[in-house]
Write a protein that binds this DNA or RNA. Structure first.
Length: 758
DNA sequence: CCAAAGATTGTCACA
DNA sequence: CAATCTTTGG
């Protein structure tokens, strides 16, 4: 067991404590993954059958990597039986096996967020509710958090606190929507992400025999990133571990950054209560970063009141100070990043992959991308619109989904008339509404159309029939053909491929290529070895991709690229050089967080995570002016900058003579001085771009105030006209104008009007 | 029924 | 700004 030599004392102790409940508090960069990996290897080498081990990780990628590392220690065949994956994918696997116990088909669909919101929207419409009040987004989040608290629709409606809450917020029908939503998902044979947890919980609750089976299967349970588990996840693992009590959780409360989706730091505290004979290990030595980085990170997290005290330290070099950069605009910030990468790579013989750029919101990536392109620096963006979220891909996947599960309502809505086959909006609406009223799936309804008179024309009925025949013919091939053959067949005989092929616009061409890429992916999938029955079937492929994270579908065509990602998705990763951009108030910390202590502390932990990704060098930058919502707005530097002790920082400024920072700049220690000192002194010659009274109204046009009743104007499309009336104020000023072909109401900020001087 | 233009609205992070 | 929803003209 040579590998045990790689471990320091607390790590070794944690690895060897294999019996009973164990909690490992692992500071950033303290070798947590190594401990987890070795612990599993240690279990296996002590005669524990891998079959009895369950390991829950945060991403599939982490699971895959860990599995590979374990395989290296204990051998391929030993590692094979290990169940390792995300909560969602593991529970989905269990649910597919046990689905009939809860009345679901085993080929159930997993609705993604878009599907769920689209279903909610149609429910809100059918109920005749005002969608200004019942916004699908908000409703979705409310249902999601109910599910994460293990509250189903029936319990929701009965819950007095919740219903009062909904009354007060003006949404008395909330419970009704939840109920309908639950019913529709059930009829469609679909589960959303949260259902994967809730239904697993209900399955175990209602079927003790099933629970018992899995308790005996998973005698050793390990949970990574424990600080980010929510109530439902915790409740389930607690049930699973109840019999054997061999549960080991690994986490760091300082890195809890998913409270917004129900993650509960309290789980760490509860864990101590739930398992009094708990053994706790603390990993505090950081192997990743320089002293400066570790110390700066400690400064940050110290400001939080809610935290377990930890003493993270390192014996690494002191390293460089953190460089702070102030840019005038977001574009300049991008240029700074690109230039630094360019120079550092040149001077120090580095790889592009040694650099990462982290931001708070995905929207910030654009300025960075542009700058990197200008410098010819290859980069890779994680997150944002992933491959599987592109329209053309979702369309084809919708075909696959409905072939596998014809009751899948959202898939059906997507493709029943794409490519156009004469089943229009009106028809579809009728079908959806009738199916909803009768609590059956649309497919079931369509199968009985000849018995139910919906007033559809014979032509439409025939087209529906044709559609169903097509889907059935695809469905008959599910297990007779492998995923690739069936997928290609569907892509061409549905007409989808042809539709895209005929589109010769650049976007159309790229869509066509994307479809080809998807098909290639399926081909690769079919070429993988498998021992499973129907291992290469389309349903298996769909299972595989339903729960992929964008961190998972990594194509390493050229791994030597700069990484761009949100701080959230950087969790668990490390890079030698890390740029943290957009260090501005209202962006980081986000404006939604600054009114609540709790939310602010989560932002601060997020900052902590960002800084601790770096091994050698951290850069912090902010821009004084930034485009948001297409408008240039002014920003103030983030309060977080002032929270790092001055001795770990080096402030570099652009070349323009800016002396005010020369002798102070950033306050040190607890000094809560306003970040204003980063601002450009008056008279520095730099303009406050956004101080223009009307930033939208730029270009050659007239000032907006020139348009008054009686004035003659010229419009690009409608021609000459006379202003009759002007209403509204400022940017939303609207004018009623009489043109030759009638009166029009136009928003002055959009209408390109020219004054006609008389 | 459909495409194109016009209007509106939103963006915090994720499986 | 960009994605999405709504209106409008064919």
């Amino acid at each position: 067991m040579d590998y045990l030599k790689d471990l320091n004392e607390p790590q070794l102790n944690a690895v060897q404590a294999i019996e009973g409940p164990v909690m490992i508090i692992a500071g950033a960069g303290s070798g947590k993954t190594r401990v987890l990996t070795y612990r599993i290897a240690f279990l296996i080498q002590h005669g524990i059958d891998p079959f009895h081990i369950l390991a829950l990780t945060f991403t599939n990628k982490a699971a895959r990597e860990m599995k590979e590392r374990i395989a290296k220690v204990v051998g391929e065949s030993e590692a094979k039986n290990l169940w390792m994956g995300t909560f969602h994918s593991i529970f989905a696997r269990i649910l597919r096996i046990e689905s009939e116990k809860i009345g679901y088909p085993n080929n159930f669909t997993i609705y993604d967020t878009d599907d769920a919101k689209s279903l909610l929207k149609s429910i809100i419409n059918e109920l005749g509710l005002e969608d200004k009040i019942y916004k699908p987004n908000i409703i979705y989040n409310r249902i999601s958090s109910a599910k994460n608290s293990l509250i189903n629709a029936r319990q929701y409606i009965k819950h007095p606190d919740i219903t009062t809450d909904d009354q007060l917020s003006g949404k008395p029908k909330m419970g009704l929507i939840y109920e309908k939503y639950e019913m529709r998902c059930f009829k469609a044979g679909a589960m959303d992400f949260d259902d994967l947890l809730l239904k697993t919980y209900e399955l175990f609750k209602k079927h003790p025999d099933v629970l018992y089976k899995y308790q005996n299967r998973f005698r050793f349970i390990m949970v990574d990133e424990f600080q980010d588990t929510n109530h439902a996840q915790y409740a389930i693992i607690k049930m699973l571990a109840a019999l054997h009590q061999n549960i080991c959780v690994v986490g760091d409360d300082a890195q809890s950054i998913y409270a917004f989706r129900g993650a509960n730091i309290e789980n760490i505290l509860n864990f101590e209560k739930d398992y009094p004979d708990l053994q706790t290990f603390k990993l505090e030595q950081n192997y990743r970063s320089t002293k400066n980085i570790v110390n700066a990170a400690n400064c940050i997290i110290e400001k939080n009141t809610q935290q377990h005290k930890k003493n993270v330290w390192t014996s690494n070099h002191t390293g460089n100070k953190i460089k702070v950069f102030r840019a005038t605009t977001d574009n300049e910030e991008g240029n700074f990043v690109a230039q630094q990468i360019f120079e550092n790579r040149m001077n120090q013989q580095l790889q592009y992959s040694d650099f990462a750029v982290l931001y708070r919101t995905n929207a910030q990536s654009r300025a960075l991308e542009e700058a990197l392109r200008r410098f010819n620096i290859p980069y890779r963006i994680y997150g944002g619109l992933s491959f599987y979220q592109r329209k053309e891909i979702k369309d084809l996947l919708a075909y696959f989904r409905i072939v596998i599960n014809p009751h899948d309502e959202e898939a059906l809505k997507r493709i029943i008339n794409y490519p156009a086959r004469g089943i229009g909006k009106t028809t579809l609406e009728k079908l959806v509404a009738t199916a909803g009223e009768n609590e059956v799936s649309i497919w079931t309804l369509m199968s009985h159309l000849h018995e139910i008179k919906l007033g559809l024309s014979p032509g439409v009925l025939k087209k529906i029939e044709e559609f169903m025949v097509m889907i059935r013919s695809f469905a008959s091939m599910i297990y007779t053909h492998n995923a690739f053959d069936l997928a290609s067949h569907i892509a061409s005989s549905s007409g989808l491929l042809k539709e895209l092929y005929n589109d010769k616009t650049p976007e159309g061409v790229s869509r066509y290529e994307n479809i080809q890429e998807l098909l290639n992916g399926i081909k690769e999938f079919c070429e993988q070895e498998t021992t499973e029955e129907n291992g290469h079937s389309l349903p298996k492929f769909m299972e595989e991709i339903a729960l992929l994270t964008d961190a998972d579908n990594e194509k390493d065509d050229d791994p030597n690229k700069v990484s761009l990602m949100t701080i959230h998705s950087s969790k668990g990763l490390e890079f030698p050089y890390v740029f943290i951009v957009g260090m501005e108030e209202n962006l980081f910390p986000s404006q939604l967080s600054i009114n609540s202590r709790q939310d602010l502390e989560e932002e601060r932990r997020l900052f902590y995570v960002a800084v601790t990704r770096a091994m050698k060098q951290v850069y912090l930058s902010f821009a004084l002016n930034r485009y948001r919502y297409g408008q240039l707005i002014m920003s103030e530097p983030s309060r977080f900058l002032a929270e790092i002790d001055r001795e770990y920082l080096e402030i570099s400024l652009p070349s323009q003579g800016l002396s005010s920072l020369g002798n102070g700049g950033i306050p040190s220690g607890n000094n809560r001085t306003s970040a204003n000192q980063y601002h450009i002194p008056k008279g520095s010659g730099l303009k406050k771009i956004s101080s223009s009274p009307n930033p939208l109204f730029s270009g050659p046009s007239e000032p907006i105030t020139a348009f008054q009743p009686g004035v003659e104007v010229m419009h690009g499309k409608f021609g000459r006209g006379t202003i009759l009336q002007v209403e509204g104020n400022d940017l939303n000023r609207m004018a009623t104008i009489r043109f030759q072909d009638g009166e029009k109401k136009l928003l002055l900020k959009f209408a390109k009007l020219t004054l006609i001087k008389s």
